[in-house]
């Protein structure tokens, strides 16, 4: 194992999959000559050439659809959205073409495509540029959605996504690109299955369910709560869809208390679905109502303090954990 950044991990995943399968190509805005708006594709143009690392004009709906068409005839496109806020321009393709094709063609056309890029609020980018899209996309049958929080998960999930024979969204996070973590050496194949959560920290008093940018928050809070004699188990979903119910239920059966901390909005957010599933299946295991920490139900304001007030954070999570623990 060696320590690399989340950005580097994604870069390795791309390079390895491009190397392995000539049908894989990477397309998006500024991915080639500029080396990626966030430098995730650095060096790939030099290594794989302009046939496979392809810059596009600003035409999200066009190149997302191009990818889906190419996938219908056997290529395996990786489509980068500069951010998932811009994927909304391509919503029709991502939601209406990619996931529907298999059903409506009676099983003739599966769509092996990966849509990837940063998702969720970064820092003071305001309303149009701060969308957390996981709950929109996870609500669509036929799409798979994963949300890696660590370099290791980023590499393993992206590689799996590229090999998947269905449309998969890899929702990265701008604020995580420079974070570091231990990852297997490049000569060791690293594939992390979709639909497998990861217990990032074990605990016995409360289960904190998180993903993407809320994972580091949860780990910080868990460490802090330990000093107050509250033992929190941190369950990183890694994939929103498929959802690892088993891992969730196992943890809840152990702790009997749950807080879900998500980066999307509260209304119809990811946590709402998880709450439903927990109470439906293991209602008797619960010793307290489940709480959710999410964004406020408002478009994102630019002002820094207001943005902070809107976002989930450690303080809000601590309050919620104490409430479910009646501490």
């Amino acid at each position: 194992m060696r320590e690399i950044t989340y950005r580097q991990a994604l870069n390795e995943a791309l390079a390895e999959e491009l190397e392995r399968d000539p049908n894989v190509f990477l397309m998006g805005e500024e991915v080639a000559e500029y080396q990626g708006a966030y430098k995730v594709s650095a060096g790939l143009l030099q290594r794989f050439g302009s046939k496979r690392i392809i810059d596009t004009p600003i035409s999200e709906n066009g190149f997302a659809g191009l990818g889906i068409g190419a996938a219908m005839v056997g290529l395996r496109p990786i489509i980068e959205f500069m951010t998932f806020s811009f994927s909304l321009v391509a919503f029709d393709q991502v939601v209406n073409n990619a996931p529907n094709m298999f059903m409506m063609s009676g099983g003739q056309f599966n769509i092996p495509i990966t849509f990837r890029g940063p998702n969720g609020p970064a820092h003071q980018l305001a309303a149009t540029h701060s969308h957390a899209t996981e709950n929109f996309y996870a609500s669509v049958p036929g799409l798979k959605v994963c949300t890696p929080a660590t370099p290791r998960d980023a590499k393993g999930l992206l590689k799996t996504a590229v090999r998947d024979d269905n449309p998969v969204l890899v929702l990265e996070a701008e604020l995580l690109y420079s974070s570091k973590g231990m990852v297997e050496p490049p000569d060791e194949e690293l594939l992390i299955p979709l639909g497998k959560a990861d217990v990032k920290r074990e605990g016995s008093d409360v289960t904190v369910i998180c993903y993407s940018q809320t994972v580091p928050i949860s780990l910080t809070v868990a460490a802090q709560l330990e000093e107050e004699d509250i033992s929190a188990e941190v369950v990183d979903l890694r994939s929103i869809k498929p959802l690892d119910e088993k891992a969730i239920f196992e943890s809840v059966a152990k702790t009997h208390r749950v807080v879900i901390v998500e980066q999307d909005h509260p209304f119809c957010g990811v946590g709402a679905e998880i709450c439903y599933r927990i109470q439906k299946t293991i209602f008797d295991e619960l010793d307290a109502p489940i709480l959710r920490v999410s964004q406020e139900d408002v478009p994102m304001p630019y002002n820094e303090d207001l943005e902070r007030a809107v976002l989930p954070n450690a303080e809000k999570l601590v309050t919620a954990v104490k409430q479910v623990c009646y501490a």
């Binding site: 600003i58 806020s85 305001a126 149009t128 540029h129 207001l306």
Partner: peptide, 23 residues
Amino acid sequence: GLGGSMHFFDKEHHMYGGHAIVS
């Protein structure tokens, strides 16, 4: 202070924004 650099609006002066999604 809610829009920031990319989202300037001024109704009085008939300035209808400041729009950050290209086109």
